[in-house]
């Protein structure tokens, strides 16, 4: 009896320890997030009006409803939300700090919600201010500040808090290095995206990057890059994608355009050029000048190399 009881007590102890461990990780994350906010009197003119609340993957849905699905795809961990009164008029401002799985994921969700028409501002790695909103990202954090004062520009007020939080996030962070591999010609500023899964609707495309382009003659198109762990994996995905395109795109002139690990399709649904170069798949979608895109993209394929190790 005694050894049996002892065993159960030990197991109960281990179970409690595990729960404690999990709870402690959550608590640590909460404390980290709180430490990014100004304490009482640290930021003149700002007063916290409600205690911070926290949501995790378990209950994010209760906070942002259907939008939670996308945040979870981007590796959401925890959000802190706190309300402030700012300035002499006590304007209401909500601060949200989303902790994502990595700096890359933070960039990904930030970029998903950004519009290229919103000029970037130098807060964190990058931010923007639009109407009553100021959002930025730095490290694994995506920070969103929202004012409900709509009758005047709250930009300077929001920027004050944003800079405070950005300074509190320690470490040097830059935009994802993969983005530096994209050509500049015809590029639309602030249109870069990182999509962690199901890129272009393909389950075998994970960790895709893309950028929008506009050319007077050819219209709008996108360039994209997907890094793989090795060239075999890339070739495997390239073959699957080629097969998919040939089924879906009603291609014309494929025979003339097809080369080893390269594919240029001209179709009524838009042109596609794809290449597989080492452990990378890249290409162009859209536009209406297959020859121009093919030339550009094939040149890109010949010169592109994966960057070395990075913080991402």
């Amino acid at each position: 009896m005694m050894p049996h009881l002892l065993k159960h007590l030990t197991l109960a102890g281990i179970t409690s320890l595990l729960l404690l461990n999990s709870g402690r990780a959550q608590e640590n994350l909460q404390q980290t997030l709180v430490s990014l906010l100004p304490q009482k009197g640290e930021l003149a003119g700002w007063r916290q009006t409600y205690e911070a609340r926290f949501f995790t993957a378990d209950d994010l849905f209760e906070y942002i409803n259907g939008a939670a699905d996308l945040y979870l795809q981007y590796g959401f961990r925890m959000v802190l939300t706190a309300d402030y009164a700012a300035g002499a008029d006590s304007n209401g401002v909500t601060v949200e700090i989303y902790t994502m799985a990595s700096p890359l994921h933070a960039f990904g969700i930030y970029a998903a919600e950004r519009s290229p028409s919103e000029p970037a501002i130098a807060i964190g790695v990058e931010g923007y201010h639009s109407a009553n909103v100021l959002n930025f990202y730095k490290g694994p954090y995506y920070v969103k500040l929202t004012s409900f004062t709509l009758d005047r520009d709250m930009g300077p007020v929001l920027a004050e808090m944003a800079r405070f939080i950005a300074d509190r996030i320690k470490g040097h962070f830059t935009a994802p290095e993969m983005l530096t591999l994209f050509p500049q010609q015809d590029a639309i500023l602030h249109s870069e995206r990182y999509i962690p899964s199901d890129f272009y609707g393909q389950s075998y495309f994970q960790n895709g990057y893309r950028r929008d382009y506009r050319n007077n003659a050819c219209g709008d198109f996108q360039l994209f890059l997907i890094p793989f762990s090795d060239s075999l994996e890339a070739r495997d995905a390239f073959a699957k994608y080629s097969e998919f395109l040939l089924k879906q795109k009603h291609p014309q002139n494929v025979k003339a355009a097809g080369e080893n690990l390269r594919l240029a399709l001209h179709s009524s649904e838009g042109d596609v050029v794809v290449f597989c170069q080492g452990a990378l798949i890249g290409g162009a979608l859209g536009g209406s000048c297959r020859q121009m895109l093919k030339t550009r993209v094939y040149h890109w394929a010949e010169t592109i190399r994966l960057p070395g190790p990075s913080p991402y």
């Binding site: 070739r235 073959a239 097969e243 998919f244 040939l246 089924k247 009603h250 097809g258 080369e259 080893n260």
Partner: peptide, 23 residues
């Protein structure tokens, strides 16, 4: 597999499907 064929520049996978047009 078709990947090998692609790498060798032999044939395009999915050609038969492509010839049938839309899914």
């Amino acid at each position: 597999s078709s990947i090998g064929m692609l790498a060798a520049g032999c044939a395009w996978p999915g050609r038969a499907a492509a010839q049938t047009g839309k899914a």
